[in-house]
Design a protein around this nucleic acid. Structure first.
Lengths: 122, 122
DNA sequence: TTTTATACTTGCAAAATGCAAGTGCAAAGT
DNA sequence: ACTTTGCACTTGCATTTTGCAAGTATAAAA
């Protein structure tokens, strides 16, 4: 269970997504990733135990759902919920800041820049 | 020195501001805090060693500057740079998400919601 | 039926964070 | 002048989070 540092909505949001990996995973899912394997293959090289733990917490906090989840392994695809997709403006703002203020970064795809939360959950 | 996990501007931004405290400090400075003491008094209760270390790193990465810094203690006031102030959209997006999706959170001041980066550095 | 791929778990090392206490300096009080 | 108070830290150590390497369970493919 998440314990909030204060009632501030900014701090509380950070208590949920303000770790090293959650928003990176979210970015990748916004760009189309749906499986554990795809997320392991990212250039950022997240460790398997961290990914499993982050996906678990993101499911708990309602940012993602896992279709045909249930018994054993091979758990099917992860999808963003409305709650998760609504974090897109945060990620887009980070992209914009990085492109403006950090040297030699990649350019994000145009479609990502113009995307809306609605498009992600369709 | 910051080591980036990849060339992605989103991930790289998170390599700079994606820890537990940096954006909370930034929020407080956007709302007017300028001194160590004011930041220690926040409801979030950041520890003194963490605050000192975060302020140091924020200065290194160019998010803030410290006026009349120099010898000994009593280092004067911290101010946001343009680079730091430009993170305001990220914080505003977090505020919006928190107010929408988390229960029983405070409401951020209207002036904060409508604020621009330019107003912060004046 | 052996191999391969996916989706994890486990054990332990390293790094980040947190708590409590102490330190150095300057201004204020007496 | 001398003590006290407040500010801005530092230090030492405990706890939590993250990271690496290896192993495990299941199912589909060969």
């Amino acid at each position: 269970m998440t314990t909030f540092r204060s009632g501030c909505p900014i701090t509380s949001s950070l208590d949920i997504v303000g770790d090293k990996w959650t928003l990176v995973i979210l970015r990748s899912m916004a760009m189309g990733a749906t499986s554990f394997a795809e997320l392991i293959a990212l250039p950022e090289k997240i460790a398997t135990n961290i990914l499993a733990s982050r996906l678990g917490r993101m499911e708990e906090t309602g940012l993602i759902v896992c279709d045909q989840a249930g018994q054993g392994r091979r758990r099917g695809v992860y999808r963003l919920t409305r709650k998760g997709a609504d974090l897109l403006p945060v990620v887009q703002a980070l992209a914009r800041w990085g492109e403006t203020h950090l040297p030699d970064r990649w350019t994000v795809p145009e479609k990502f820049r113009d995307m809306t939360s609605e498009q992600l959950i369709g």
